[in-house]
Design a binder for these strands. Sequence first.
DNA 1: TTTGTTTCTTAACTTAAGTGAACGTTTTAA
DNA 2: TTAAAACGTTCACTTAAGTTAAGAAACAAA
Lengths: 193, 193
Amino acid sequence: MENLLLEFISKYISLTDEEKNVLLSLDLFRSVKKGTVLLKEGQNSKESYFVLKGCIRTYYILDGEEKTTAFYTEMDALTPHCVISNTPSQYYIGCIEDTILLVSNIDMEEEVNSKFPKFDTMCRMFSAELLAKNKIDFDEFKTSSPEQRYLNLLHKRPDLIQRVPQHQLASYLGIKPQSLSRLKARIIVKDKG
Amino acid sequence: MENLLLEFISKYISLTDEEKNVLLSLDLFRSVKKGTVLLKEGQNSKESYFVLKGCIRTYYILDGEEKTTAFYTEMDALTPHCVISNTPSQYYIGCIEDTILLVSNIDMEEEVNSKFPKFDTMCRMFSAELLAKNKIDFDEFKTSSPEQRYLNLLHKRPDLIQRVPQHQLASYLGIKPQSLSRLKARIIVKDKG
DNA sequence: TTTGTTTCTTAACTTAAGTGAACGTTTTAA
DNA sequence: TTAAAACGTTCACTTAAGTTAAGAAACAAA
């Protein structure tokens, strides 16, 4: 796991052995069981997550209904809005699988960043990259139909369709579970014809 | 305009007079006429934009049809994906109104950031904030119907509905112009009833 | 193992978005 | 100034998603 982290960081900056040691001494790794809720609506957490292995999701409870909006798998990062704005969270974060996370605290991050400007630079680069990617994902969502979104997911993140419950996948695609079932049946018929 | 910029920056970091002078000496301001295309599909630009006054949009041309996915107005920032990834852009950027922009080049940014770590920190904070906000916007989009999205926009960015062509607004809401017209008519009837 | 719960799918019906076309209005450009 | 293009709305029709309900399958707990 330590290697996965260092490998990831090396995409952005190069670290001295001393810096590596500082990083690894911070006790960042956490194992969480499937079903664990990491953040609840209304809470004011200071934790950010980086998935080393497994899968977590963000979801809302609207009119008593769960709406899953995002899945985070290997090498995905999530800093909840509440951490940035210091306001109660609008959404939940939960574990879909047994997961190994890298958990960081915003205060600790700020401290490390001010000591090691290099980390500051890495975070800037990483955030900017995620922002640009997220925009494209959003654009793709806006410009396509539920069926296109499903087919798109099928070849971009085929693993997700296997490892994630269908009703969660449905709200991720912006539709109801019944519509996802119907849509899949429709595609199979099309393939045959 | 200079004041707007400095005011904005002061939300994140405080600058010495010297730093302010360096910043203002960089020739960042650009006036662009309505209709100007700042970035075309396939181009590999290095420019980021910050809107001081006016409005720009990102759009795609899919099957010969324009699909507008985002509007950027006063104090909104946009770093195109192509700038980050150094690959050809998938989308266009165009001016909807006569606009005053702050334009920065990625190479120049990196230089300034390495000279003034403070800017690095600011960019990190700003990117992280935008990323968290963008996620919430995306989540809201996923969890609501076109009609809810329109009503939501109506009270979050009421100016947009006035200043932007309806067919561009439609694709921004993920629907066709005809559906937007119908949807608006439907809402008016509901209000009366 | 049995029971109960959750999940997934199917179906019939309702509602709303997509499509193609028409038409008046506005904007643009020659 | 005038002709052409683009824009916004309405309409009739088609297609697909939402809703409600029911039943089968998978999963979890007693």
